[in-house]
């Protein structure tokens, strides 16, 4: 069932990426995203949605999350994005995924809900890391890096059924 929930997002990646793109471009709290080329913003979102299973379940070491999001943080810092808007966009993406699943009305039985609990665990694990590394990359680009700044996040293993 967890896979089914993930496939629902991957299968609707195009429509959902357009939707989130519109939300980010229309929200005054993420107005800096208006400077990105529409196609770039779309592709970035689509890349997450269309491979959600990979990002959540198969990138076990989370090495790619670290590389991708640190680089994203550095890039957006260089482009002059305010950090709180970047953090806001990460949270909006996570919320959009969860709202899409929640609104689809597919969580009716105890089994469905049990899988939803697993999905919440994996989603948060991924987006927590993404936000941590995007912030780390952003601060590195500004020349702000502390003692533990280069540490791998080493998230504890998640316990699911």
């Amino acid at each position: 069932m967890l896979e089914k929930l993930i496939q629902m997002i991957e299968g609707n990646a195009e429509r959902m990426a357009e939707e989130l793109k519109g939300m980010l471009l229309g929200n005054p709290e993420t107005s800096s995203y208006q400077v990105l080329a529409d196609i770039t913003l779309y592709k970035d979102i689509f890349g997450i949605y269309s491979h959600l299973g990979y990002w959540l379940l198969r990138d076990v070491e989370k090495a790619e999350v670290r590389t991708y999001y640190s680089e994203t943080g550095r890039k957006l810092s260089a482009m002059g994005f305010p950090l709180h808007e970047v953090v806001q966009a990460q949270a909006a993406t996570k919320r959009h995924i969860w709202d899409s699943i929640s609104d689809a009305g597919i969580m009716r039985t105890a089994k469905d809900l049990d899988s939803a609990v697993d999905l919440i665990t994996f989603l948060n694990r991924f987006f927590d890391m993404a936000t941590y590394y995007v912030t780390l990359g952003y601060c590195e680009a500004l020349g702000l890096q502390g003692e533990s700044g280069s540490e791998t996040w080493n998230a504890p293993e998640v316990s699911t059924r």
Partner: peptide
């Protein structure tokens, strides 16, 4: 404190 630490 570095910001990533606080977020972590």
């Amino acid at each position: 404190f570095m910001l990533p630490e606080v977020i972590s």
